[in-house]
C-alpha cells in the first residue's frame, strides 16, 4: 500500500477556511482567463508532513504553483496565486492547496466561503510579456512568491492536464473536510517554457516544515474559459480517499 500523508489534521483545521453550505455555492463562469502552472520537485519528508492522511504523496513529491488572472467574474476582475502540493486522492492526482493570495477583497471572501480556498487578500498579479509570463504575490507589501516562465513555445491544449484542487475546510457543522474543486477548462491556446520559482516567505503560503525546492520540472501557461461550480465531492481528511469520499447532493427545494 502506498504511503499516506502525515499532516496533523486537527492542528491544520485551526487555520482552515470556514465554509458556508457548499452545495448552495454559486456557479461562476470565468471566461478568458490567463493561467500559469509551474511544477517543481521538492524534498520527500517535509512534503509528507503537509499531505493529509486521506491522500498519498506523489512520487516524487512536487509543488504546483498555479496562478490565474480572471478578467470577468461575478465579483469583477481578480488575480489568484496559489501554491499547491501535488498528492493523490486514491489514484487521482490533485493539487492540495497550501495557501493562496488574491488581489480582490470581495473575491477573497467568496473563494474562502464558497470553495474553501485558503486564500488571503493581498497583492497578486499575472503579467504576460512577449518573452515571459510572471506571477507575483505579496502580503502586506512583502513578496511571498515570484514565479516566472521564460522562452514560451506553443504547445497543444490537449497536451495539458490541469489538476483539480483539494482544500481543507471547516464545515458549518464544525467538522473538518477536504473538498474537491474541479473547474472545467475550454483551452484556447497554450505555451510551455522554462520555469523559475522564488519563495521569499514560504510559510506565508502554508509551506511549513522547511520544504526545499529540488528539481525544476516545467512551466506552462494557457488561456481558457473556466469556471467554479458548487463542490460535488468531500473527503474525510483522516480516512483514505477510497473510503472517505462522499458526493454532496444539492438540498432538495422545500415543498410548495
Amino acid at each position: 500500500m502506498p504511503r499516506f500523508g502525515t499532516l496533523d489534521v486537527a492542528a491544520a483545521l485551526a487555520d482552515a477556511p470556514q465554509v458556508g453550505e457548499l452545495t448552495e455555492a454559486p456557479h461562476w463562469e470565468l471566461p478568458e482567463a490567463t493561467l500559469m502552472q509551474i511544477n517543481w520537485e521538492v524534498a520527500d519528508e517535509p512534503s509528507l508532513a503537509l499531505t493529509p492522511p486521506a491522500c498519498h504523496p506523489s512520487i516524487p513529491p512536487y509543488l504546483s504553483l498555479f496562478a490565474g488572472r480572471y478578467p470577468d467574474s461575478p465579483v469583477g476582475a481578480f488575480t489568484l496565486v496559489q501554491l499547491r502540493l501535488v498528492v493523490r486522492a486514491g489514484i487521482r492526482p490533485r493539487g492540495y492547496c497550501l495557501g493562496a493570495v488574491c488581489d480582490s477583497a470581495e473575491a477573497t471572501g467568496a473563494l474562502r466561503t464558497h470553495w474553501g480556498y485558503p486564500v488571503v487578500h493581498g497583492e497578486a498579479s499575472l503579467s504576460v510579456r512577449h518573452d515571459r509570463v510572471q506571477a507575483r504575490a505579496a502580503i502586506g507589501g512583502r513578496d511571498v512568491v515570484i514565479a516566472t516562465l521564460t522562452q514560451p513555445e506553443t504547445i497543444g491544449g490537449a497536451d495539458l492536464m490541469p489538476f483539480d484542487n483539494l482544500h481543507l475546510v471547516r464545515l458549518p457543522d464544525g467538522t473538518g473536510a477536504i473538498v474537491q474543486i474541479d473547474p472545467e477548462y475550454a483551452i484556447h491556446s497554450a505555451d510551455r517554457g522554462t520555469p523559475t520559482l522564488v519563495l521569499p516567505d514560504p510559510q506565508a503560503l502554508g509551506m511549513r516544515g522547511g520544504i526545499s525546492l529540488d528539481l525544476a520540472m516545467v512551466g506552462f501557461t494557457f488561456k481558457a474559459d473556466t469556471d467554479l461550480a458548487p463542490v460535488r465531492f468531500a473527503l474525510d481528511p483522516s480516512l483514505p480517499a477510497f473510503q472517505g469520499t462522499r458526493r454532496l447532493e444539492p438540498k432538495a427545494a422545500a415543498p410548495a
Partner: peptide, 23 residues
C-alpha cells in the same frame, strides 16, 4: 495492481509534451 499503477506520475501528467500524446 491497478491501484499501484495509478500512483505513477505519468509523463504527460507532470510535463505537457507532444512526446506522450495520451496518458
Amino acid at each position: 495492481f491497478q491501484y499501484l499503477a495509478g500512483q505513477l506520475d505519468m509523463a504527460k501528467e507532470a510535463y505537457p509534451t507532444k512526446g506522450y500524446p495520451s496518458p
